[in-house]
C-alpha cells in the first residue's frame, strides 16, 4: 500500500511541477474523503491537477464550468419523458463522476451552488423524490477566482465549511516554470500518465486512512488548536466541531501519505493551514486580516 502511495505521488509530480506540498495535500484531501476548494487565478494548473489525479487514480473525471445561468439540473441531471418507452428517464448530470472539477463555482447562482454542495455533503442526489447515490470515490475540486469581486456569488461561510481543505496553488517556482516552458506538449503528457490505481484500490486506501492511530495526546492538540480559534479575539467565532473532525481526518490522511502508523503533531501542522484558513472568519470589528492559521500554530503549545 505504501508503494502504491509513493508511485501515485511520483506519477503526479511528473505533471504538476514544483508543487509537491499542494499535490500531497490534494491527495490527502481525496484520501480523507473530503472535498477540495482551490482559490486561485486561472492558469496555474488547477485543471491539470484534477485531471492528473483522476487519471493516476484511475477515476472517472468530469468538469463543470459554472456560469451565472447554470441551473441545478444542469449539474445534477434531469428526468426526461421519453415517448419511446412512455416513461421518464433520468439523464444523470455531470456530477455523476468520481472526480469533479467544479470550475469557478462562485460564478453560479446560490441555488446551483447549494445543489452541488448538498450533493457533495451527502454523496447522493435527490431528484424528483428519488435518491441516487453518487459513485464511490467521490471527490470534488471546486475552484474560486478571488480576483473579480464584482458580479460573483462568493460562497457563504457555512458552505465553505463543507470543503475539507482550501488551497491556493500559487505560481510555480522559477525552476519548475522553466521546466514547464521546456515541455513540448502537456496534453500528451497527461494522456501518457500511467494509471497507478483503480477505484477499488482508492477506496481501500481511504479505509487505510481511517485506521491511522490518533492517540489522546494528539486529540488534545487538535482540541487545543480548535479552542484557540474560539478564544482568539480577532476571529468572529471559533471553528465548528466539524472543523475539528476535518482536521483529524486530514491529519490522518497526511500521516498515511507519510507512511506513519500514528498521527504526529507535525501531521496536524502540515494540514492545518489548508484545513483551517477558509474557516477562520475575521471578527466584524476587526479592521485587519484575521490571524492566519500559521499564527495560531505558532501560539498553541503542543500538549
Amino acid at each position: 500500500m505504501k508503494a502504491a502511495v509513493s508511485r501515485t505521488v511520483d506519477a503526479l509530480e511528473q505533471v504538476i511541477l514544483g508543487k509537491p506540498q499542494e499535490l500531497r495535500l490534494a491527495l490527502a484531501c481525496l484520501l480523507a474523503q473530503g472535498h477540495l476548494l482551490i482559490e486561485d487565478v486561472p492558469g496555474v494548473g488547477k485543471t491539470t491537477l484534477a485531471l492528473a489525479l483522476a487519471r493516476v487514480l484511475g477515476l472517472e473525471f468530469q468538469r463543470i464550468q459554472f456560469t451565472a445561468d447554470l441551473l441545478p439540473a444542469d449539474v445534477l441531471g434531469v428526468s426526461v419523458f421519453e415517448s419511446g418507452s412512455n416513461a421518464f428517464r433520468f439523464h444523470p448530470g455531470p456530477i455523476f463522476a468520481q472526480v469533479i472539477l467544479a470550475d469557478e463555482i462562485n460564478r453560479a447562482s446560490p441555488k446551483t451552488q447549494s445543489a452541488l454542495l448538498e450533493a457533495m455533503e451527502e454523496r447522493q442526489v435527490s431528484i424528483e423524490g428519488k435518491t441516487r447515490p453518487l459513485p464511490a470515490p467521490f471527490f470534488v475540486i471546486a475552484t474560486q477566482n478571488p480576483l473579480s469581486q464584482l458580479g460573483v456569488f462568493s460562497l457563504p461561510e457555512s458552505q465553505l465549511d463543507r470543503f475539507l481543505m482550501c488551497l491556493s496553488m500559487g505560481y510555480p517556482p522559477p525552476a519548475a516554470e522553466r521546466a514547464l516552458l521546456a515541455q513540448t506538449d502537456r496534453r500528451s503528457l497527461l494522456a501518457e500518465l500511467p494509471c497507478v490505481l483503480d477505484a477499488a484500490q482508492v477506496q481501500s486506501l481511504q479505509a487505510g486512512v481511517r485506521e491511522v492511530t490518533a492517540r489522546p495526546a494528539l486529540l488534545d492538540y487538535i482540541l487545543a488548536l480548535v479552542q484557540a480559534t474560539r478564544e482568539h479575539a480577532g476571529l468572529r467565532h471559533g471553528v465548528s466541531p466539524r472543523a475539528g473532525l476535518a482536521l483529524k481526518r486530514a491529519a490522518q490522511a497526511w500521516a498515511f501519505l507519510m507512511g506513519r502508523p500514528g498521527v504526529l503533531p507535525e501531521d496536524v501542522q502540515a494540514v492545518f493551514p489548508a484545513v483551517m484558513d477558509h474557516r477562520l472568519l475575521p471578527a466584524h470589528a476587526a479592521l485587519h486580516a484575521p490571524p492566519s492559521a500559521r499564527d495560531l500554530l505558532a501560539a498553541v503549545a503542543i500538549p
Binding site: 469581486q149 464584482l150 475575521p282 476587526a286 479592521l287 485587519h288 486580516a289
Partner: peptide, 26 residues
C-alpha cells in the same frame, strides 16, 4: 463604492471590503 489608492509610485487597485480597507489604511 469600490476605491483605489495612489500613493506616490504605489498603487492599490480598486476593491472593496474590510481587507482592502486595511490594506489602504496601512
Amino acid at each position: 463604492v469600490a476605491f483605489g489608492l495612489r500613493l506616490g509610485g504605489d498603487q492599490i487597485d480598486l476593491d472593496r471590503g474590510p481587507a482592502h480597507r486595511h490594506r489602504c489604511l496601512s
